[in-house]
Measured scan of single mutants.
Amino acid sequence: DTINITLPDGKTLTLTVTPEFTVKELAEEIARRLGLSPEDIKDTHNGKTLDPSLTLAEYGITPGSTITLEIK
């Protein structure tokens, strides 16, 4: 299953994830792909900052969802 990550420059990154991924694991994968530190990444969905300890499923993030990435 894939989700879309909207980057600060407007580009989109597509990642393969499972509903059990935590937001922290997602940030780590994004950081790895972009050459950043996971601590520099802030993920938001529907205007809410995502708690790193919760899973994508707990936020109702499903395949095809879009998450907005902010760099701290």
Rank of each mutant, 00 (worst) to 15 (best):
E28P: 00
G35Y: 04
K11V: 11
T68W: 13
K11T: 14
S53H: 11
P8N: 11
T68Q: 13
K24R: 14
G60K: 02
L26Q: 00
F21L: 13
K48I: 15
E58F: 07
L50Y: 12
L36P: 00
T6I: 15
L7V: 04
A27F: 15
N46P: 07
D9K: 03
G64I: 02
T55G: 02
D1P: 13
T62M: 12
G60E: 03
S65R: 02
L54Q: 06
I71A: 05
T62V: 12
L7E: 01
D9C: 11
T44N: 08
D40S: 13
L26A: 02
G10Q: 04
L34C: 07
L26W: 03
L54S: 10
E39H: 13
G64E: 03
K11I: 12
G64Q: 04
V17L: 07
L56Y: 01
D43L: 15
I5V: 13
E70L: 10
N4C: 07
T6E: 13
V17R: 00
T22A: 01
L7Q: 02
T49C: 13
G60T: 02
G35H: 08
A57K: 12
I61G: 01
G60I: 02
P8A: 10
A31K: 05
T55V: 03
I71S: 06
E29C: 06
L34A: 05
P63S: 08
L56C: 04
A57S: 09
P63Q: 07
S37N: 13
A27G: 09
I67P: 01
I41H: 02
K48H: 15
T12I: 12
A27L: 15
T55N: 03
T22M: 02
I3Q: 00
T18Y: 11
A31Q: 05
L69Q: 01
E20W: 12
D1W: 13
S65A: 11
L69I: 14
I61T: 01
K72Q: 12
T2V: 10
L15W: 03
L69C: 12
G64D: 04
P63V: 07
E58L: 02
E58A: 08
V17T: 05
P19I: 06
L34T: 14
L56T: 01
T2R: 09
T62E: 09
N4T: 11
Y59G: 04
T22F: 01
R32E: 08
